[in-house]
Simulated assay, not measured.
Amino acid sequence: MQKEILKTLNQIEAQHNVKILYACESGSRAWGFPSPDSDYDVRYLYIRPVEAYLKLFPERDVIEGPIDEIKDFVGWDLQKALKLLMKGNAPLIEWVRSPIVYKDNPWLRENLIKLFNEQSDFNTLYRGYFGLAKNNFKAYLTGESVKPKKYLHVLRSVLACEWIKQKKTIPPVLFKEVYEGLLVPGTPFYSEFQELLKIKAEEKERTTGDHFVAVDKFINEFFSESKGPLLSSKEPVNVDEYDKFFLECLRREN
């Protein structure tokens, strides 16, 4: 699969006249809990030639596809990625820390995280995960039957918020490292949580079932807690440093 993915990345570069700087796995495979039929969610960052950023009508800053039953490719222009990084975009920060890398760029990975840690409001990352948790909860966990996959998507974001609140650091991408660092075994919630992980690992992606009472209680309690400072504080972002970094990348890659 690695060879197929790299071949497609090379084809994307040629077709769109871009240079792919970094490519990784996102989603359940990167988080460490794929289903037997999980696809490959390939995500990448790319940069265009300098003149492309000087046009009156710039190219789109996203490249989507190809997509088939097994693989799903999506790429972001580095300029778009930097704008989202300023806002604490959780998926992007996970991409550059993914344990499954198809095309590595250690300099880029390390400096993107350094830029975020030094120049942005760290609470934006909390707000990003909180928004993911709330949106997924409303979309997938309010019906009579639910998918274990969606439960885990919500719990990932909820526990990422708890990690940020308690440890004041970026949460690990591997879900096991997050929950083992936060949860207490032996509780009703932990028992149901382990059952969810088991179902996710053994059943297909579209499997549905009944609600998990203790898990629902855990999630509802999270949303009902007061999070005023974490959700409302907004420190200024040093945009100049992001500009400098983008220009440095242009110089390095052109």
Rank of each mutant, 00 (worst) to 15 (best):
K168W: 00
H153C: 07
Y151T: 05
G143L: 11
I170T: 01
K167Y: 07
A139C: 10
I164C: 04
S145A: 15
A160S: 14
A160T: 02
I170R: 01
P171C: 02
Y129N: 04
K167S: 03
A133V: 07
L159D: 10
Y129F: 13
I164H: 00
L155Q: 11
I170C: 04
P171K: 04
A133Q: 07
K134I: 06
P172D: 06
S145W: 14
L159S: 11
S157L: 06
G131T: 00
A160D: 09
Y140E: 12
N136M: 10
T169E: 12
Y151M: 07
K167G: 05
T142M: 12
A133L: 07
K134Q: 09
P171F: 03
C161G: 07
C161P: 08
K138G: 10
P148A: 08
K138Q: 14
Y140W: 11
F130G: 01
F130N: 03
A139E: 14
F137K: 01
V146S: 01
L155V: 05
F130S: 01
N135D: 14
A160H: 04
V158M: 13
E162C: 05
G131Q: 04
S157Q: 09
I170N: 02
P172F: 06
Y140F: 14
G128P: 00
Y151D: 09
L159W: 10
A160Q: 02
H153G: 11
L152A: 08
L159Q: 13
G128H: 04
K147N: 11
E144I: 15
T169Y: 04
V154I: 13
K134W: 12
N135F: 02
L155M: 14
F137R: 01
A133R: 06
S145V: 15
V173M: 02
P172R: 03
T169W: 01
F130T: 01
L141A: 08
L141R: 03
P148R: 03
G131S: 07
I170S: 00
G143V: 14
K167C: 06
T169D: 09
Y129E: 03
K167F: 08
A139D: 14
L152M: 15
K147E: 14
Y151N: 08
F130M: 02
P171D: 01
R156G: 08
Y151R: 09
K147F: 04
E144Q: 12
P148N: 07
K149H: 11
T142N: 07
C161W: 06
P171W: 05
G143S: 14
Q166A: 14
F130Q: 06
G128Y: 00
G143W: 11
E162P: 01
Q166C: 06
L155H: 12
L132K: 09
A133E: 09
A139L: 13
Y129T: 05
V173L: 00
L159R: 10
K165M: 13
K167D: 04
P171R: 05
H153R: 12
V173Y: 06
R156W: 13
W163R: 07
P148T: 09
K150C: 08
K134A: 07
S157P: 13
I170V: 07
K168F: 04
N135M: 08
C161V: 02
Q166D: 12
T169S: 12
H153N: 15
A133C: 11
K150Y: 11
V158H: 11
S145R: 15
